[in-house]
Structure formats: C-alpha cells, structure tokens
Design a protein around this nucleic acid. Sequence first.
DNA 1: AGATTTTTAGACAGACTTGTCCAAATCGTC
DNA 2: GACGATTTGGACAAGTCTGTCTAAAAATCT
Lengths: 216, 216
Amino acid sequence: MRTANAPDIALPRSHMAKRESVVDAAARVFCREGFGGSNIDLIAAEAGVSRQTVYNHHGDKERLFEAVVREITERINVEFFETLGTFPDKPGDLQKDLSAFAMRLMRNCICNRDGKFLRKLIQSEGERYPGLFETWREQGPGKTWAALAARFARLALAGHLDLDDPDLAARQFLALVNADLQMSMMLGVTLTEAELEASAAQAVKTFLRAYGRKVA
Amino acid sequence: MRTANAPDIALPRSHMAKRESVVDAAARVFCREGFGGSNIDLIAAEAGVSRQTVYNHHGDKERLFEAVVREITERINVEFFETLGTFPDKPGDLQKDLSAFAMRLMRNCICNRDGKFLRKLIQSEGERYPGLFETWREQGPGKTWAALAARFARLALAGHLDLDDPDLAARQFLALVNADLQMSMMLGVTLTEAELEASAAQAVKTFLRAYGRKVA
DNA sequence: AGATTTTTAGACAGACTTGTCCAAATCGTC
DNA sequence: GACGATTTGGACAAGTCTGTCTAAAAATCT
C-alpha cells in the first residue's frame, strides 16, 4: 500500500514518475510513428525504462495507447480552462486583449506539445478507434468550445461584439487563430514567437472586422 | 513497347488499370492504417491484385508510398486549378457566388476522397519523410494558394473587396471554409450536403463582413 | 495460333514484434 | 541492515511482415 506521508519526492519517484515518463514517451512515439508503426521497445527505450516495466504499468499496447489519449486529454483540458480564465471579459483594447488571449491559447493549448500530440493522434487514429475519443469529444468540442462561446456571448452582450451565433463565432475564431499554425505544421516549420504574434494579431484583426462593433 | 492505337479500353486494362487500382488501394490503406500499420498483402487484396504485382509495379513499400503521394498530389492539383477557373471574377451577388465557389472547392478538392487522403497523409507521415512532400509544398501552398490569392487581389482591384494582403485573405478564406469541415472529420461525422452548404455560406458571410466593401 | 509479356499463387528465409516468464539487481521502507 | 516491492535484462514462443523466387496461368500482340 501507499504510505501517503512521503515528504515530496521520495515515494512517487520510482513508481509514479516512471508511469508518467512512459506515457510521455509513448505519446511522442505514437505521434511520430503512428500506432501501427510504433513498437514497445522503442517506447521503453525513449522512456528510459525496461520493456517489462511498460507492460507492468499498462498491460498491452492498446491499453497503453488508451492511457496516453486519456491522460493528454485531461492535461489539455485543465490547461484550456485555466487559459479561458484569462479571457478578456472587460477589454480595454479589444484587438490587443484578444490577440494576447489568442497567443496564450496557442501557447498553452494548441501549439503546445500536448496539443500537437492530441490533435495528431485524433486525426490519424480516430477512425480506427471510434469509441476511444469519446472522452475527448465530450470534453473538447462539447465543453471547452461551449465555454469559449459563452465568453464571446458575454462580450457581445456587453456591447463589445456584434454577433448572433456565439458558437459559430467561437469556431471561426479558433479556425482563424489556427490557420497559419496548421499550415506551418504541415510544412514542418516551427513559427518563431514573432511570427506567432503576427499570426494571432492578423487572426484577431479579421475576426474583429467581421464581428467588432461597427460603432466605435 | 506500347502501340498507342488501342481502341479505348483494350490495352490499358491490365497494366495501367492495375497500376491505378494499386495506387488507389494503397492510398486508402495507408490513410486508414498509417504507413507503419499497413501491409502489402492487405493493399494487394484491396486492389484485387496479387502481392507480386504490387512489387512488380512499385518496387517496395517506401516507393509505393511515394508514388501514392505523388499521384494524389497531381490529381488534386489538376482539380484545384479546374475549380479555380470557376472563381467569380465578375460577381453578381458576391455572397452567393463566393459561397458557390467555396462549395465547389470543398466538393472537388478538400472534402474529396483524394483531398482527405492527402491531408491525412501529410499530417501523419510528413514528419517522417521530410523530402517527400516537397512536391506537394511547391505545388500546393506554393502554386495553388498563390493563384487563389491572385484571384482575390483582382476582386479587390475591381472594387469588390477591401483588402491589403491577398495572401492572408486567401489563407483565412480557406481556414474559414475548412473550419466546420475539419471539425466534423475529427468527430468522424460526415456532413450532409445541406450542412456543407450552410457551412460554406457562414464562412463566406464572415469573410465578407471582414473583407467586403463597406460601401454597397 | 504462336510468341511475348504480365500476372498469379504459393513457398520461402530473414527480420521484427508482441507479450510472457524468470532470476538477479535495485530501490525505498522499517 | 533486513525486508518487500519494483525494476531490469535477457530468453522465449508465436505470430506477422517484407521482399525474393519459382513455375504455372492468363492476357496481349503480331
């Protein structure tokens, strides 16, 4: 059993830390090689752990994959809601505040290592595991997006935006913010901080041209 | 040698038709299972061809994959430029004409079987084959997007749009048009024709709110 | 019809994977 | 320092996959 009185790093070091290390390595490898192209030995090596340990912790390859998806989804979700807490409800300069928010979103949720992994895993393996991404679907599009839409709705109600369909606005906001990012990822280029900033600014500018109050 | 006087379907049947059948099946399988998860037997079976034939035509798995990417890229490119020919240069109702164009784009290039395959292959295998998608990069973002941007520039010059950066506008146009589509694909849902139409209309509406002439 | 090319089915070796098992080494706790 | 749990490395069987080779069958061309 677990004597839960360990100071700080003594107890979890071996067991829990290794578990996390395995999940991280597995995410990296699955993401890079695809599920079919990955092998447990490589994951174990990349995690700095013996193969047996991987099996001890997660049973088999399929269950390891599920664990990876589950854990990353959770992490991303936490991060998203944390970031959503910084949404500019009472903006001074809407362009500036929304751009800054978009930047935080990119950095913490989209451009993020976890974000990249999850998106890629969903796209490449989603078709083969119809039930697997249920959790993501409920928590991702179902909850986080709705929450973002609600913020836009409040902004509109407060007279800062002019929109009818907050859900649509939220989707399009994300699409615009993602536009350059996705492209650069397809091209295999990593955007610099400055480029990221410019991309966010342009996305928000277009968003506000479409949804900003006509009356200043 | 090839005596190029065959009536219509006699000559190409076996050789060329089989080659295409193999490429098609390979695209399907690579796309579904990923490169690492695919196996030649399955591809051969799905193409209705013996395994040996696959090897005769394409050498090995790697070269088969390259052939798939090359051929699909070419097909998409042709389709894109054909569709681009229907761009509304002299629009009557800009909202209606651009929506219709967006629909054609989705149907012929994005939502298309080839389009889905190529996008997925780029996203899942692009990282592992840095040089492989060179052709796509040059012909896709390099040529087709620039061509689309040029059309928007002309539209702006003719006084139908109000924009400074046609490249940015083209990227954002595509991002908006893709927004719902990509989501539905992540969710594993196939949009109905009506939903597709609504999605295109909303994308164009937002695009025109941002870039349409303020003066009617 | 006869000659030539392509396709086929199956066997095959070599390599790689998965998942299990086990004895020795390591770690953290008492 | 001794104890119990975890980890390790390596061996292992069973299975899969690639890519080659063969001889027979089918299709194509002249």
